[in-house]
């Protein structure tokens, strides 16, 4: 009996961990839903690979800062919470900056100033303050990976779109030591060589476009849900009315 109960409890915990993990990727996607971390999303997404690179760095920083913040959450007095978090985050950002410069110099060069700026990425501070400071280490780590993964996927989506529109190819860069050479898709379509999408204006427009697409999907789902609910209410109403009528008839019949 006890064993069964504990297994059940464990499954529940697993489910919860899974929920924490997936929530950050889709339902609470930091970029498309919460609109956090807009600056790097615009600046470093001129190609799929830069987006991927930035995303990896954010995964590293966010996961580790979440773990450390969660570890020290009980000893940190409330008044100095924010400065302590800033120091923790800035430390990991510096470390990740040094490691990138050593092992992926081309990526370091192309991300440039946006590596130190991970410090002020609101996303990381927000997770430290709102999640890691209240949950245990494991959950914080899972949350960090999930949220950062969602951020990375968003960056890759934007980067891939911009790269494809501007060059007709995807992942044709030379930044990351990727296992594959050359391009994933190289349509070579001159039609798609619109340089404006690599430039600053393209960043704003592509993010705006994707936000509108996700909003449209959300609106559609909402409408569908509302319609279903309306239908359900309608049905219930009808049933209730039917019951009432039948009852009335029955009582009328009974009395007749």
């Amino acid at each position: 009996m006890a064993q069964q109960a504990s297994a059940k409890k464990k499954r529940k915990k697993d489910l919860q961990a899974l929920a924490v993990f997936t929530r950050g990727i889709i339902k609470e996607n930091s970029l498309f839903v919460l609109l956090l971390g807009m600056c790097p999303a615009l600046a470093v997404t001129s190609s799929l690979e830069t987006g991927l690179g930035m995303g990896l760095l954010v995964i590293f920083v966010l996961t580790l800062s979440n773990i450390v913040v969660s570890l020290i959450r009980k000893v940190i007095p409330d008044e100095i919470r924010i400065p302590a978090y800033i120091v923790v985050i800035a430390t990991f950002v510096t470390i990740v900056g040094l490691l990138t410069e050593a092992f992926a110099p081309a990526l370091h060069e192309s991300l440039g100033i946006f590596i130190p700026l991970i410090v002020v990425n609101c996303l990381i501070m927000e997770r430290a303050n709102n999640f890691a400071s209240k949950n245990n280490v494991l959950m914080s780590a899972i949350d960090g990976i999930g949220v950062a993964l969602g951020f990375m996927l968003a960056l890759m989506l934007i980067g891939g779109t911009r790269e494809f529109l501007a060059t007709g190819a995807i992942a044709y860069g030379i930044y990351l030591p990727l296992p594959f050479e050359g391009s994933i898709i190289n349509a070579g379509l001159t039609l798609f060589q619109m340089e404006v999408f690599i430039g600053p204006a393209g960043g704003f427009i592509v993010i705006g476009f994707w936000l509108a697409v996700f909003k449209a999907i959300e609106l559609y789902n909402k409408r569908k849900k509302k319609e279903a609910r309306d239908r359900w209410i309608e049905k219930k109403k009808k049933e209730a009315a039917e019951r009432k009528r039948r009852k009335a008839m029955e009582s009328a019949g009974g009395s007749a």
Binding site: G208, A212, K215, L219
Partner: peptide, 14 residues
Amino acid sequence: NAWKGIPISLIVAG
């Protein structure tokens, strides 16, 4: 509806 708020702002910014 879908473009209201941030999306259209981003296009304007672009």
